[in-house]
Design a protein around this nucleic acid. Structure first.
Lengths: 207, 207
DNA sequence: TGTACATCAGTGAACGCGCGTTCACTGATGTAC
DNA sequence: TGTACATCAGTGAACGCGCGTTCACTGATGTAC
């Protein structure tokens, strides 16, 4: 078979995107070449027309997951009025929907630990994306001194990511919901303390 | 060779303890039977005199890591005067020493994600130990209503665990230290807000 | 326009390697007499 | 107390299986003429 000129790139993309979902769902160690090719509707032998090795695919899939994550944060921040951004990010992040959709969710809770066990090169790539996220969040607090806003942003990310990991480990029951709720409240406490008074926020879950 | 009556139990323990360190360092997928036996000074064939399978060892090693973790939290809490416990736990947790000693450190940041991918049985065991930790921390805020103290405890655990994961992924440089510092401050903010005023706490790292 | 050839994404059998697991065996020590 | 036997933690070769990787091949389509 021979296909249109974009065909190969499309197949490549399809494999990478699917791998990045599986990567978040189950971790790098459990990704098999045969399985991933089958999921892309191909046989395992063709894999090496697209990637130099299994590790090369995993690198690409990892990069894709990180990029998708930062892209979504950015999009979400841009779509909302300034004073609601942080609350929207936190509430959307610590929602049951996000908890139950590991494969398409933020890469931090699913891949953060794996990064700490990975090569310095992967760690560098991760640190750079994490810096992007911190900067994005810090921008949502323009009335705070830059250093304070940055520290605040780091704390919010640590809290929502940590709460997400605990909530997922706890399953999908009451305990898990309780963790999400406690995380939302804690992550938004900094904002409420620093910002000028508005109505008490009582937001719950959302998409 | 035949040994004294405790010998088998001692060997069993040695294998489990070492496996629980390796488990935290590198995750379950990378634990090999041969390697673990070699590290215990034995050959791989003897493994099945101690464990029914590789999975059985991993279960034991996981349980050991969780138990060691809750044991240490308890010990640390008991050794200190009431009003310094939370600060001591947080500062000790988010220290460079703890960051750099994954194998002997808290099981939450190293194994939490793995738990979310594990069997319901493992998740139950994890949830139960997590409840212990929450209860332990909540006890450190006796002047708060029980429900509030519990919510606060969950938030603190999520924050310090999340910060530890990010700090480890970021390596051991300035950025990593900054994450630890931001985490310490955020985790102790709740306490400072809720408790009666004392001197400003300025604690940094410790063992 | 029609024909011959080149291309190359994808196929599927095969390979080698490492890993979990099994098993016949060892030999130092506890126990029975 | 001394001797014969039973025990069983540990040894190391061997097994089967799955996985990443290789490779000769296919065949539909693009290109040259």
């Amino acid at each position: 078979m021979r296909y249109s000129k974009d065909h190969k790139a499309e197949t490549h993309d399809r494999i990478v995107k699917n791998a990045s979902v599986r990567l978040r769902e189950r971790g790098a160690a459990s990704l098999g070449v045969s399985e991933l090719m089958k999921e892309a509707g191909l046989t395992h032998g063709g894999f090496y027309a697209h990637f130099a090795s299994r590790d090369a695919l995993i690198s690409e899939a990892f990069a894709h997951a990180m990029q998708q994550t930062t892209g979504r944060w950015r999009k979400r921040a841009e779509q909302l009025p300034e004073d609601k951004r942080l609350a929207s990010i936190v509430n959307g992040y610590l929602s049951a929907e996000h908890r139950d959709d590991v494969g398409n969710g933020c890469a931090l809770p699913s891949l953060g630990v794996e990064v700490s066990r990975a090569s310095p090169k992967t760690r560098k790539a991760f640190a750079s994306k994490l810096e992007d996220m911190i900067a994005m969040l810090a921008e949502q607090s323009p009335d705070l001194p830059a250093k304070t806003a940055r520290r605040e942003a780091i704390a919010v990310i640590a809290t929502i990511m940590g709460a997400m990991i605990l909530a997922r480990a706890a399953g999908t029951g009451e305990f898990s919901d309780e963790i999400l709720s406690a995380g939302r409240q804690a992550a938004l406490r900094g904002e409420n303390a620093a910002k000028p008074r508005t109505k008490k926020p009582k937001a719950r879950t959302e998409a």
